[in-house]
């Protein structure tokens, strides 16, 4: 293993409890740069809980989240984003009244504006150039050019997924968390989404943590998988290992099916 602990996202002993119930129990995993890492498991296994703890929407009861070697456990979402962590939303929280182009541009602009009132007020020329360049590149990559002027709220689910992805791509984040990106997509759209993510990782070397229920997507693009059940890690390995694992099969179909 060449990947040091300073590379990518690293979660150690993550525990999250709600009112005495432990949703996630002592979870540890790593999502290094340059790799697509999958986090899978049956319904209610704790995937989204883990995901929200990584992106800062949820404070863990115990354990730590480190990003590129820095402990970010106590930081809020905006601070994590400043440190290079971008996320998408399963429910595609787009800026519906803004155009596709503006949505994507905001991926970078929000990051440049930070919490500085002056930077929020006006956009320096230098920023404008870089925002434009990033937006054009993403529009091209996601093939959203024909829709650039459409309000995001008027798009189909497949296009909305791409805009959601496009926003974090424009932001130039080094670590991307993708939240169930295939929900609502048909298989052709899902495959296309997978191709774009693979290409981004190959080109930019960023890391991706994918929480997903569509196994065909997970199996085709992830290099490494972590399988959760009841908030605990039950298996870890490459897609072929996972496919062959009796434990994983049992978790998905019920114990007797194994």
């Amino acid at each position: 293993m060449t990947s040091s602990e300073h590379d990518g996202l690293r979660v150690d002993g993550l525990t999250i409890a709600f009112g005495g119930n432990t949703a996630v129990d002592g979870l540890s995993f790593a999502a290094p740069r340059g790799r697509i890492t999958g986090l899978i498991g049956p319904n209610g296994a704790g995937k989204t809980t883990t995901f929200n703890a990584c992106s800062g929407l949820l404070r863990p009861s115990a354990g730590s989240v480190r990003l590129f070697g820095t402990d970010i456990t106590g930081r809020g979402p905006a601070a994590r984003a400043q440190h290079g962590l971008g996320r998408t939303f399963q429910r595609m929280d787009l800026f519906d009244s803004l155009t596709v182009e503006q949505n994507i541009a905001l991926g970078l602009e929000a990051r440049l504006a930070r919490s500085n009132p002056l930077k929020q007020l006006r956009c320096p020329r230098r920023d404008r150039t870089s925002v434009r360049a990033a937006t054009e590149a993403v529009l091209e990559l996601c093939d959203l050019g024909p829709h650039r002027g459409d309000p995001a709220g008027s798009l189909s689910t497949g296009q909305r997924r791409l805009v959601d992805l496009g926003r974090v791509l424009a932001g130039g984040f080094d670590m991307l968390l993708l939240d169930e990106p295939s929900s609502g997509l048909d298989s052709a759209e899902t495959r296309r989404f997978g191709r774009i993510v693979t290409r981004v990782v190959a080109d930019s070397g960023c890391g991706v943590l994918l929480v997903e229920h569509d196994m065909s997507l997970v199996m085709s693009i992830c290099e490494h998988l972590y399988v959760l059940d009841f908030g605990k890690m039950i298996f870890e390995g490459d897609p072929a290992d996972v496919r062959a694992s009796d434990a994983v099969r049992a978790a998905y179909l019920g114990s007797e099916a194994a």
Binding site: S55, G56, L57, G76, P77, A78, R80, A81, Q82, G86, R87, F89, D93, L94, F95, D96, S97, L98, Q102, N103, L106, G107, E109, A110, R111, A113, R114, S115, N116, Q120, R167, V168, G171
Partner: peptide, 16 residues
């Protein structure tokens, strides 16, 4: 306008 639509996603993109 982005905040009016979705404050949560604006925050996760890094804006205060």
């Amino acid at each position: 306008r982005a905040m009016a639509d979705s404050p949560t996603s604006l925050a996760t993109l890094g804006a205060g």
